[in-house]
């Protein structure tokens, strides 16, 4: 009996270590597969042509592999969506943590969670069939597929994440900090702006970076609403292609391993992986460096 239990305990512990190891293997597998194909890609396409070229035409003749149009398209989506998600997310967080009564919070939080739980494909549909027609009514020169519509949808989708990350940090500020200010006759606004925001600034910054990273990796909304034309433009009313949009578009057709198309998808994917990885690490670094202590 004793021996049996000891043996079982041993086997269970070792299996759990193995389970935990899967996540390490996943990371390694991501890196190995991305690097392998990307390395092959750069054997054929000089890295500088890829990074600085202004024409993206991997399937046309003549082929061209300048990634800038995709990069600019992606960054535009990230920029314009943050115009919505950052201020509105911050505002929602302040409202929830500083103004809302317990009952109001109980109603609003599930609504935000619902908003966060809606699949991006649905936001894509909403952008294409509702937001785009609306924009085109106001600005008729807008193309059917455009940056603005997709950005608005991405912004709405990332808003709840920003709100909840910041709200968590604000709720962690002890009430004694607030009460000190209220005792001096401060209004809620003054407390929020002069005490709560400064003391949670690193969480806010970190949430902002994460939201931008999310927007960069967002796929289905942009594949549906932002278009599939890799044009180097800064006009949000025009159609573009993002890095993720390109990857999806290529995968919809049959691409066989070993072809340049296949390697191209991996090269773009590697770039995407690194951009988001760096931003996630930066977000974590901000939090780690300025841990709020009470």
């Amino acid at each position: 009996m004793k021996k049996k239990i000891k043996k079982r305990e041993f086997i269970i512990e070792k299996s759990l270590i193995l389970f935990a190891g899967i996540s390490i293997i996943t990371t390694l597998a991501i890196i190995v597969t991305l690097f392998g194909e990307t390395f092959q890609f750069f054997k054929e396409i000089p890295i500088m042509d890829f990074l600085t070229g202004k024409t993206w035409a991997p399937t046309l003749v003549p082929k061209s592999f300048g990634v800038l149009p995709l990069l600019v398209g992606t960054l535009m989506i990230a920029l314009f969506s943050s115009i919505i998600s950052l201020p509105l997310g911050l505002g929602s967080a302040i409202y929830l943590s500083e103004y809302a009564k317990k009952r109001t919070r109980k109603i609003i939080k599930p609504i935000l969670e619902l908003l966060a739980g809606i699949p991006s494909i649905v936001y894509g549909f909403f952008a294409l069939t509702f937001i785009t027609p609306l924009i085109r009514q106001i600005l008729p020169q807008t193309q059917i597929f455009n940056v603005a519509s997709a950005s608005i949808a991405v912004g709405i989708m990332t808003l709840p994440m920003v709100a909840s990350l910041i709200e968590d940090a604000m709720m962690a500020v002890p009430n004694s900090v607030r009460n000190g200010a209220y005792a001096l006759g401060s209004t809620k606004m003054e407390v929020a702006l002069k005490i709560i925001i400064p003391s949670t600034s690193s969480s806010i910054a970190s949430a902002f970076v994460l939201a931008i990273s999310r927007a960069i990796g967002e796929t289905m909304i942009v594949a549906i609403a932002a278009g599939q034309s890799p044009v180097l433009t800064f006009n949000p009313l025009e159609s573009i292609q993002t890095m993720t949009g390109f990857m999806v578009n290529m995968s919809l057709g049959e691409i066989s391993q070993g072809t340049l198309e296949y390697k191209t998808v991996f090269a773009v994917g590697t770039m995407l992986f690194f951009m988001t990885l760096i931003m996630n690490l930066v977000a974590k670094g901000i939090l780690y460096r300025n841990r709020e202590r009470y």
């Binding site: 990371t27 991501i30 990796g217 796929t219 995407l272 992986f273 931003m279």
Partner: peptide, 15 residues
């Protein structure tokens, strides 16, 4: 694990 949580879904597709 926390880094994996931030990897875009499409990258998992490539994996």
């Amino acid at each position: 694990i926390s880094n994996l949580a931030g990897v875009p879904a499409i990258v998992y597709g490539m994996l």
